[in-house]
Design a protein around this nucleic acid. Structure first.
Length: 312
DNA sequence: GTCCAGGTTC
DNA sequence: GAACCTGGAC
């Protein structure tokens, strides 16, 4: 659906200015709120530090953004601290053993991120240790998709990139009461954000949108009374912020079964193996298992044990 | 316990 | 469009 149709459909009764996000009012209100209420995070350079001339370190921005993909801020904090302690810069990470990186990542989930992290570190270190400073250049690197490229460009390099993560999708879908399901509306949401991004402090603007989504414009029970954008928000005006964003119902997830074999030797040693690098839990250590399939058959029973025995 | 959120890859 | 993991809300 074209953006102008969306705007007409969703923002009726609103002043065109605020609804289109072109006035710059939204960005300045949001930045003022961010200055007063931003979260203090281990990887973040706060507004008053930026004002004193402290620059973000692209390595730390990249590391934190990769860790934050599909992962909550609380879970990331301790891992981030451990990583920068162990590997303070991209050269240190590039010089590490992949296995050590996998170990340090254990517990964070989505382990392909750790393999891509290491691959990316090797690549960047080999090219002189400098990250590309454009979205397109960043997008080429392993483990960096549209969101992460925009986030690094904005936060580390102060470029006016449209940073759209799940938080921002929720904030924008409420601001403009977007009734189109999220999967279809992503393009329009990105266009709205592009129009809102200010020429100055684009990195703080990106972080402010995400802080707003995390602290005020929450998925459930949003704290609209505290929101700096309450006068701009179409969903508040109609009193139903919580019904946005609209999502398509998701399909059933297939159930897969299999067996795991725990072999304990007399001296207490346990038989372990390393999984292949691709797919489920790639590169992780495990007890031997069968394949995992939709039905129980010869490949998922004791018949597939690593050695004959009295398996129970 | 059950439901749900969430970027990148292939 | 499906696969990939964990943790938070209820």
């Amino acid at each position: 659906m074209a953006l102008h149709d969306q705007t007409r459909k969703t923002a009726s009764g609103d002043s065109g200015k605020a609804a289109s996000g072109e006035s710059g009012e939204i960005a300045s209100r949001l930045l003022a709120w961010y200055d007063a209420h931003h979260r203090d995070l281990p990887w973040r350079i706060a507004p008053r530090e930026l004002a004193r001339g402290i620059r973000p370190d692209p390595y730390r921005v990249w590391l934190s953004e990769v860790m934050l993909q599909q992962t909550t801020v609380e879970a990331v904090k301790s891992y981030f601290r451990a990583f920068v302690e162990k590997w303070p810069d991209i050269e240190a990470l590039a010089a590490s053993a992949t296995e050590d990186v996998m170990k340090a990542w254990a517990g964070l989930g989505y382990y392909s991120r750790a393999r891509n992290l290491k691959a990316c570190a090797n690549l960047v270190a080999r090219q002189g240790g400098r990250f590309p400073d454009t979205q397109a250049g960043l997008r080429e690197l392993p483990g960096i998709g549209a969101y992460t490229a925009a986030a690094i460009a904005a936060i580390a390099f102060d470029q006016p990139a449209a940073v759209v993560d799940g938080n921002v999708e929720r904030v924008v879908s409420r601001l403009f009461s977007i009734v189109t399901p999220l999967s279809e509306a992503k393009g329009d949401i990105c266009t709205y954000v592009e129009r809102m991004v200010p020429a100055t402090r684009p990195g703080d603007f990106a972080q402010a949108m995400m802080d707003l989504g995390a602290m005020i414009c929450t998925p459930r029970r949003p704290r609209c009374g505290l929101c700096p954008l309450r006068e701009d928000c179409s969903a508040i005006i109609s009193g139903d912020a919580e019904r946005f964003p609209v999502r398509l119902p998701k399909g059933e997830k297939p159930l897969r079964r299999g067996a795991a074999f725990v072999a304990v030797r007399g001296d207490g040693a346990i038989l372990l193996r390393k999984r292949g690098d691709q797919g489920l839990l790639g590169g992780m250590t495990e007890v031997p298992t069968t394949g995992w399939t939709a039905r129980i058959d010869g490949g998922t029973t004791a018949a597939a044990a690593p050695f004959p025995g009295n398996w129970r």
